[in-house]
């Protein structure tokens, strides 16, 4: 693979920053030049969070151009849609299906897009889309907080990088006392996408 320009999209508090840090670290361990850019600040108070993660032989800008992203890792459907204009039509997208309702909908007048409309919009825009219920998988494992690691497990199947390397980086990035839970979450995520895609 020549390069991977990955958009990580989610909501403040979902662990998207940990996930994008892990992605950057995996790129480094796999021998790539790596850059990553986050938008922080007020975004952490329940706002949208976007990270750009770039792997390549040589990476110049930490910010990717519109239409240049070839992977989307979205932790929330609405945020996946928000990220779509940045994607290349040939991109591959992985999206957690569990919505987090913004306050503009929950106590305001706006509507959250319907499930079918979200799926259609994603599928109509990029080459491949996997919608998975990572939150459900994480809750089945006993803790919704590992949703991000379930997502990473599933996402790892889209790359040629060794699963063992991914898992090593994941476990080095989470508290030791939660190592078993996170290892289980990572593997459950891989199983969601049948492990074999590349």
């Amino acid at each position: 693979m020549k390069r991977a320009d990955i958009l990580v999209a989610g909501v403040g508090g979902q662990g998207t920053l940990l996930a994008s840090n892990i992605l950057a670290e995996v790129g480094l361990c796999a021998g790539y030049d790596v850059k990553k850019s986050d938008v922080l600040g007020l975004a952490v108070r329940g706002g949208s969070v976007l990270s750009h993660v770039r792997w390549g032989d040589e990476v110049a800008s930490p910010v990717v151009r519109t239409g240049g992203m070839n992977y989307l890792l979205a932790f929330e459907p609405l945020e996946a849609l928000r990220g779509l204009p940045l994607m290349h039509p040939d991109a591959r997208a992985l999206c957690n299906a569990q919505p987090i309702i913004p306050i503009s909908v929950s106590s305001g007048k706006l509507e959250y897009p319907a499930d079918e409309a979200i799926a259609a919009s994603l599928r109509g825009s990029v080459r491949s889309v996997d919608l998975i219920d990572a939150t459900r998988t994480a809750m089945d494992l006993g803790n919704p907080r590992v949703t991000n690691v379930v997502m990473l497990g599933a996402f790892s199947t889209l790359f040629e990088v060794d699963a063992e390397l991914w898992e090593k980086v994941v476990l080095a990035s989470v508290p030791t006392k939660h190592a078993d839970l996170n290892a289980a979450a990572f593997r459950a995520g891989r199983a969601l996408l049948g492990e074999e895609k590349s």
């Binding site: 329940g46 949208s48 239409g67 204009p85 039509p89 979200i118």
Partner: peptide, 15 residues
Amino acid sequence: ADPIALDLDLPPRTP
């Protein structure tokens, strides 16, 4: 690439 156009109105997620 050809820009991806969204045909949905997305509710904002303000802090």
